[in-house]
Nucleic acid binder design. Structure first.
Lengths: 209, 209
DNA sequence: AAGAATACCAAGCAAGCGCTTGGTTTGTAA
DNA sequence: TTACAAACCAAGCGCTTGCTTGGTATTCTT
């Protein structure tokens, strides 16, 4: 059986080429993927550097050749996933026009980021926030602001167009919770498709007109 | 200045009298309150038994006179808060009739439990799940099922009455996320009241008819 | 082929962790 | 007053943690 090489999306590949994120098949990339999985399953604190080393097949001490400390690994996991998903969201927005379509695109993106390939990293981003030192939190916060502005801008447009009735800032926050929480219950093997789920979420968010 | 004694709700007091939960001013009760606060702020893993001891003014070793180990403290925090809030929800439901009013009552209860007195403990219940050993998880799960059944039953009624359009199980899960996430952004000092927030959440959940 | 980075290993240190132990103080009831 | 249990302290044990160190392979460049 030939080694199957995962094909990246063009947007993802562009970020790798620019050196903004690590290639998933590089040493660092595999470490970050393993870290994301472990951090999601056991939590950052309960995951030891020995766990991380074992997951990528090296000694725990060798990790510190790639990153200065354990926290930097957590931070890298978060940074890479938010940068990537911001880019994917921009690309999806660029292909839509009507406000309702844009909201649906954003919902799809966010669900896909939470339930798909980057799901582990996204979960870590949402739930392991407190384990970062303050300096790192501020750094990540900047990146999150860019991401959130894509959402807020779209929701304001939709409100002006009449398909959103409540305050966009509150709506976004309610949606953030509703969508990120899916990681705790949604299973791809079940009857409900991600697309159906996205439609349901949309039906809550907007008032058809 | 005389020592102000906090007045408990009658439902809460009844549970204390039955011995189901500890009185908040007892030694155990104060420990659980302090534990909830610390677990919420720093996370269970990052909170040491020395932190807990200091918070209630005793040596760390003395904690183990009250609870056999640290995990039992976490478990007690979770058990007490879910039992209490289930009872409060039952009481609120008993005072309503129409399905829409019931849903609003449930939303109010859940927001109050997350944003009010028991907020720290509720946050711990939601976010520190993984830190319990499996046996404890199953125990808590039983209690959560009782709580969730109150929700599901109400949403099914509402669907039959036509005010809910999507699958009640999915709706509940989306609402769980949306409401529990409020702990990460809602501030009582702000302009938005809990009641307004509840109304907004209701407007997402139901279709007016 | 030579040399320099780069990536790794084997071993272990210092600190912090949950928890135990043996003994002392405090509260309660006859 | 006495007797007993509950509540606590002071000290520290055994273990795990993140990380360091000194040295060895591997890979890359010219």
């Amino acid at each position: 059986m030939p080694k199957q090489k995962k094909q990246l999306s063009t947007d993802h590949q562009a970020l790798v080429d620019k050196g903004v994120v690590n290639a998933p098949d590089s040493a660092k990339g595999r470490l970050l993927q393993a870290a994301a999985t472990l951090f999601k399953e056991k939590g950052y604190e309960r995951t030891t550097v020995r766990d991380l080393g074992k997951a990528v097949g090296i000694q725990s001490g060798s990790l510190f050749h790639h990153y200065p400390n354990k926290e930097a690994i957590l931070r890298a996991v978060m940074e890479e996933t938010i940068i990537l998903n911001t880019e994917l969201m921009k690309a999806a927005l660029a292909q839509t026009n009507k406000p309702e379509d844009k909201i649906l695109a954003l919902i799809r993106c966010e669900l896909e980021s939470v339930l798909g390939e980057t799901g582990a990293a996204m979960t870590v981003l949402v739930y392991e926030w407190r384990s970062l030192k303050e300096e790192s939190q501020l750094e990540i916060l900047k990146l999150r602001d860019i991401y959130e502005n894509l959402w807020i801008g779209t929701l304001i447009e939709a409100k002006e167009a009449g398909s959103v009735v409540i305050d966009p800032a509150v709506l976004r926050r309610l949606l953030t919770g509703a969508l990120s929480w899916t990681v705790n219950w949604y299973r791809k093997e079940g009857d409900l498709t991600v697309e159906q789920l996205a439609q349901m979420a949309l039906s809550l968010a907007i008032k058809p007109n």
